Simulated assay, not measured.
Amino acid sequence: MSRYRELKFRAVTSFQRRIGNPILTRLPHQTLLETRGRKSGLPRRTPIGGRRIGREFWLVSEYGEKSQYVRNIQADPRVRVRVKGRWYTGTAHLVPQDDARARLRTLPRLNSTAVRVVGTNLLTVRVDLTD
């Protein structure tokens, strides 16, 4: 990774971890992804943007396999997604063969724009919902 991309990654993730995520996770209608911490085993909630399409929920990770929630999915793909205040359980799948930029065009515009601007290694994630 180039020095610029590494600095960008550190700045954005630091902001998200310290300021953005603590605020957004408290908003009642913010879409959240809950994974299980790969080391602690504790639930980890991450504000995300994405869209439910039938029995699937689609999102794009801006940092691919470098994102902590993606690493948690790799360790345990069982997740929960909160959409419009309601929790759904499901199984997450990384979809590297998907065109993440094209996928962003089908997802909510504001989040998709932010992901395109700050992202350095886009990766599509599909959650197969079970309830």
Rank of each mutant, 00 (worst) to 15 (best):
R80N: 00
A100E: 06
I73N: 06
G50L: 02
V79I: 08
R51T: 11
L94R: 03
S61A: 15
R78M: 05
A100Q: 04
W87H: 06
Q74R: 14
A75F: 04
A75P: 05
W58M: 09
Q97E: 15
Q74T: 11
R101K: 15
Q74W: 01
S67M: 08
L59Q: 11
V60C: 13
D98I: 12
A102M: 07
A102T: 13
R78S: 13
T89W: 08
A102K: 13
R101A: 15
G64M: 12
R71K: 14
Q97W: 03
R52I: 14
Y88D: 04
T91I: 09
D99N: 14
I53W: 11
R51G: 14
P77Q: 05
E62K: 03
R52T: 13
T91S: 02
Q97G: 02
S67E: 12
Y63R: 02
W87Y: 09
R86H: 13
T91V: 12
L59V: 08
G54T: 14
Q74V: 13
R101S: 15
D76F: 04
A102Y: 05
A102C: 06
P96R: 00
V60F: 10
G50D: 08
Y88L: 04
Q68C: 00
Y69Q: 03
T89N: 14
G50V: 03
A75C: 10
H93Y: 07
V60T: 11
Q74G: 08
G85W: 04
D99L: 09
R101E: 15
R86C: 06
P96K: 00
R82K: 15
V83K: 01
K84I: 07
D99I: 10
E62W: 01
R80P: 00
V70W: 09
L94S: 05
W87E: 06
Q74M: 14
T89P: 04
G50E: 06
D99K: 11
I48T: 10
R52Y: 09
V95R: 07
W87V: 06
I73T: 05
N72T: 01
R78H: 14
R52D: 13
L59D: 08
G90P: 04
D99S: 11
Q68H: 05
I53N: 12
R86D: 09
R86A: 13
P77S: 11
R80H: 00
I48R: 03
R78E: 14
Q97S: 14
R71N: 03
Y69W: 15
A92T: 09
V79Q: 05
V95S: 00
K66F: 02
